[in-house]
Design a protein around this nucleic acid. Structure first.
Lengths: 164, 164
DNA sequence: GACGGGGTACTCGGATAGAGCTTGTCCGAGTTAGCGTGG
DNA sequence: CCACGCTAACTCGGACAAGCTCTATCCGAGTACCCCGTC
């Protein structure tokens, strides 16, 4: 089980966009240069965030991406769902309805308790992610390095021409 | 993010093996026929369980698989780890050490708080899975359908010749 | 009748192909800023 | 000097390939059982 690698990229980008603020848009090329990532592929991930309503995109010069709502209203689960898809990791295929097991009494197959247990574990995971917002991460990093945000802002608003 | 499909198969098989008991071995073909699964592939998954020490395997006639230890000592996490691998879903690639971001002060890159948050969520998921055992599932199903176990036992101990 | 040996059928186990999804790349449509021109 | 239109560059957006993991299959090694022959 491996999560989409773009989730890490998207989370970092969201924190950076929170520092830049909603007045300036940052193009995908700028964010890609910031972490040395493939521009086009990062663009694809940001598109997914735009479709999910997490960021808003504008075309043309001075265009790019910016947060579509306050950082405190964007949970980690929102980002993970946007990039990695809404489907659960464990999918019950109801295998117990096939083969010889269909000879068993119906009430045996009423509810799949295995699927239920797996689902509860995933709910716990989701709950944990939904409890943390981009603003939480942002605040924690600021306490760790107070001058980081300002430097990030400066680097992102004067992007190099392009690296890829 | 999609979990290995064999996890569902392995969990069902473990519950069934718990009903059969440690005195009789059930061949992979029998379990496959029970759920109409591809025999060779299910065998591969059971091999993984054997490598993890969850089941023990014996060759030859009257051979097959059986639980290697009491069902109460096999957690769902044990099975998931054996089939799906021990690696975490979210893997921090430390992208913030590449590109322009390396201009940032060192203490900004001290600990990746994003990776930490993602890890905590996964720990929560694992804790939930580690809290449930095969015996728990087995007991809950028995309360739901008291005669299911005996029928399952009978079906598994007289497997049809082969279906695939 | 009892014992021993060989054959046979059955089982797992690992090595080997095929499919689907993730990753990566490319080029086109749309938009906006800036500049040049005319009033 | 100001306003307007055009051009050109820049941006996103979706369509198009490559790599890798998961899925699926096959055949060989090993083993226990069973039958047969012999004592």
């Amino acid at each position: 089980m491996r999560m989409n690698e773009g989730v890490e990229w998207a989370l970092h980008c969201c924190v950076n966009l929170a520092w830049v603020g909603p007045d300036e848009a940052v193009p995908a090329a700028g964010l890609a240069a910031f972490y040395d990532l493939p521009t086009a592929y990062l663009n694809k991930q940001l598109q997914a965030l735009a479709r999910a309503g997490i960021v808003s995109s504008t075309s043309g010069p001075k265009g790019g991406f910016r947060l579509a709502r306050p950082a405190k209203d964007i949970t980690l689960l929102d980002v993970v769902t946007a990039i990695d898809g809404p489907e659960e990791a464990f999918r019950c295929r109801e295998i117990r309805r096939n083969g010889a097991s269909r000879k068993l009494p119906d009430d045996y197959r009423q509810r799949c308790l295995i699927a239920q247990a797996m689902r509860e574990a995933e709910v716990s995971w989701r709950r944990e992610l939904a409890a943390r917002t981009i603003a939480d991460i942002k605040g924690a990093v600021e306490r760790q390095a107070p001058d980081g945000p300002e430097l990030t802002r400066r680097l992102l608003l004067r992007p190099p021409r392009s690296r890829r």
